[in-house]
């Protein structure tokens, strides 16, 4: 049921990738996505495949979790492929009825499919090996220079981590209230659109009330512990780059070079 939905789908394991600094992983993911769009070449994508496979292997997360995210974009992926195939002008390959498939179109479609798939898998590697809290921590520290431009980095990060923290709580609460109303004969599945919308009332009213109650409790608890925003606040576990992070940055550079070289040398 609802319990099985995971957002911030962290997969607990003990691996090098898990232990990396979240900033390294954020940058790494960005570098990976960037490289997919920059080097439009099959040879370069072969390099990307090898590197991605290596990282997945090192992360100790079962492969089926990586591809789970793909399910949700399957339709989008198919539409992209079809549109690219039919609508790219160029050398006609063959004709079906009024639609022509062009050579360029097939290539374009293949590139788009690879890019989208790798983009999802690449970011899954990050979200599966990093807890949401680590991620916001990493963002807070990484974006700190923006403070000078009067961007409230800490406040935004705090809001994000609270929001993330509340997702599973509210999901669980939804599950609980749903069950409680089902025990009173409520029906959430059958009926038309109007009926379904109406049946949401017994779920949403208690859910909103509980969300507000939790929010006010949390605010009170934070104040009671002396929270007053980011100024002068220290961390219990400050983020610090380790040797493995430096290695990872080095690996990223090598990766970009390899991509560039692969494209340049083979030209394919």
């Amino acid at each position: 049921m609802i319990r099985d939905i995971t957002i911030g789908q962290y997969y607990p394991a003990d691996s090098v990738i898990h232990r990396l600094d979240p900033r390294t992983k954020l940058v790494g993911t960005l570098v990976f996505i960037f490289s997919l769009f920059l080097f439009r070449s099959f040879a370069a994508y072969a390099v990307a495949t090898i590197c991605l496979a290596g990282v997945i292997r090192a992360s100790k997360v079962p492969f089926k979790f990586m591809v789970k995210g793909l399910k949700s974009i399957l339709i989008l992926l198919m539409i992209t492929v079809v549109f690219n195939m039919f609508l790219t002008p160029g050398e006609p390959l063959f004709k079906i009825w009024k639609l022509t498939i062009t050579q360029e179109g097939v290539l374009q479609a293949a590139f788009m499919a690879i890019r989208l798939t790798y983009l999802i898998i690449g970011s899954s590697v990050m979200t599966l090996t990093t807890t949401p809290n680590q991620l916001t921590d990493g963002m807070e520290k990484g974006l700190r220079p923006l403070n000078k431009l009067h961007v409230p980095v800490h406040e935004v990060a705090m809001m994000m981590s609270i929001a993330l923290r509340f997702i599973p709580i509210l999901l669980e609460e939804t599950d609980k209230i749903m069950k409680a109303q089902m025990a009173r004969g409520a029906d959430f599945e059958n009926g038309g659109l109007l009926q379904k919308a109406k049946s949401m009332v017994p779920l949403l009213v208690p859910l909103f009330i509980s969300a507000f109650r939790r929010a006010s409790d949390l605010a009170m608890a934070m104040e009671a512990r002396g929270y007053h925003g980011g100024g002068g606040r220290t961390k219990m576990k400050p983020l610090k780059y380790q040797k493995r992070d430096h290695m990872a940055y080095l690996a990223m550079m090598l990766y970009l070079l390899a991509m560039y070289a692969a494209k340049r040398i083979t030209g394919f």
């Binding site: 209230i177 409680a180 017994p202």
Partner: peptide, 11 residues
């Protein structure tokens, strides 16, 4: 079935 904290289901 009366759930724990059933008052949270009042709407």
């Amino acid at each position: 079935l009366v759930f724990q904290y059933p008052e949270y289901q009042l709407f």
